[in-house]
Amino acid sequence: MSEKNNPVKTVEAPENSDVSRRELFKKTAIAGTIAAAGAASTTIAASNAEPGGFSDALDEFFQKHYQEMSKKEMKKTLARLERKAKVKHGKQIQISNTPPIEGVLFGYALNISKCKGYRKCVDACVEENNQNRDTKIQYIRVLELENESMNFEEADHYYNHETVPHTGKKYFPIQCQQCENPPCVTACPVEATWKEADGITVIDYNWCIGCRYCAAACPYWARKFNWSEPSIPEEEINPETHYLSNRPRMRGVMEKCTFCLQRTRKGKLPACLEACPTGARVFGNILDPKSEIRYVLENKKVFRLKEELKTEPKFWYYSD
């Protein structure tokens, strides 16, 4: 994993005058371009109405890429975003920027013979990750397939029986496969999405321009877009958030499953795993030879989705 992928190592920028002069130049240049484009007035007028006032709006507009912020800038940014969330959602939340843990590469395995199609993972995911309730963004899709078929084109995405499992059917949950070669990352024109050192592909919601090229590039349909301004009832907001994962998003940006890095980087398990009543899900550090996930990978007949595309997913399926 390269240095670049690890934000801990890159955040420290020397605070000398040269840097600030460059900064000034940069800001002037940006401002000039924007003004020339005639966009400044609309942008600022639009953000002026937003919570936090004019200076916050300006700071948000000029906010740097996650990987380029210094420690100080990061602290200020997180505070500003928390402030904004408070005004918008009426709730105090915490936004952390916990870095990846050294020597950890996350992997997920799912036992399809245990999955019964309850979709508990889907609901738990929405609650944990603060998805927009209006457009009903879901990171996990459970397909219902004929028992003998693996043809997704014949799958039912919206099965709705009194009880599951339905006879003769099997269930196949799909979420972000956390590719080692993620096509979405290559596609993004502004590097708003990248793979972290622990193997998780993340998005800087404040850097994404919303072109949706990554969504076209993803073979697993894992990237979901905020078509409207996200709305979540205040009491349903999960206040424990991470900058790169479940913090409140804004309209016009992409989002995706991060294997709940706000939890897993602190040693907890993903919400979908905890919610699964059948124990179909196994999660862990694939670099740790004693982990359960390694046991599964070594002892079960595992397979991955669309392996022929060479995306090298870190999500395995098996049955027993």
Binding site: T33, A192, I209, C211
Partner: peptide, 13 residues
């Protein structure tokens, strides 16, 4: 006009 965040156009520079 297709961009979700046209205000962030400058990220492309």
């Amino acid at each position: 006009i297709d961009l979700g965040r046209p205000d962030r156009m400058w990220h492309l520079l």
